[in-house]
Amino acid sequence: MYAVQKEDLISQAQTGDTYAQGELVREWYPRIYNYAFKYFGDADLASEAAQQTFIAMHHKIGQLKECNKFKSWIYTIVTNICRQESRKGKRHKWLSFDQLLPKQEEESSPAWEISKQGESNPEQTYLQGELGEILTKCLQQLSKDQREVLIMKEYEGLKFREIADALKVSENTVKSRLYYAFSHMRKLLAKENITENSVRYEN
């Protein structure tokens, strides 16, 4: 679904070719960031986790035995980092300056005015933001195991085998966790009055 592994690029990166490593970062950064963003529901933490992931990748890529397992391997790293950050987050709640300072745009202009470049439909942007907030809230209410599997499968497009490799569990465990994640999400979305019809209507 997303980035295609380039095994030769990975092999070069393993030999210490920093250009190849840079290319891997450029290719994989959006995927890893979005995984962490959905995991935490926080852009700062996601950015921090993504950067730590690529630093770890830089140090450990030589230890990767099979290049075709790179995808599972990098999701193992980011998942471990997300778990660590999540444990830290229980002890320390970090606030960025953006959170502390008043958001002028929120006070002075409607949300559709600050739509990102390239997103031409302000209404679509607004609805995306609203849906994103609801789904973030729902995902945060899932257990970590269920959340990891659901994000990897639904948003990262990993095969069940790849998820099992990344999480070091069996495929059946992955499917079981995903089943319970869906059961839970169904209830949470119903609680938020989000149905397929409402989303289609909005679109």
């Binding site: 970062v25 450029r26 950064y29 959006p30 960031y33 979005n34 963003f37 852009a43 950015s47 950067q51 990102k116 390239g118 995306q128 849906l131 994103g132 789904l135 639904e154 948003y155 869906f182 999400m185 169904r186 979305l189 989000i194 149905t195 397929e196 989303v199 679109n203």
Partner: peptide, 17 residues
């Protein structure tokens, strides 16, 4: 239905720092 709802949430557009 849940899957369809979740599919509508698009990725954040980011690039490597």
């Amino acid at each position: 239905t849940s899957k369809d709802v979740m599919e509508n949430w698009e990725d954040e557009k980011v690039s490597a720092p």
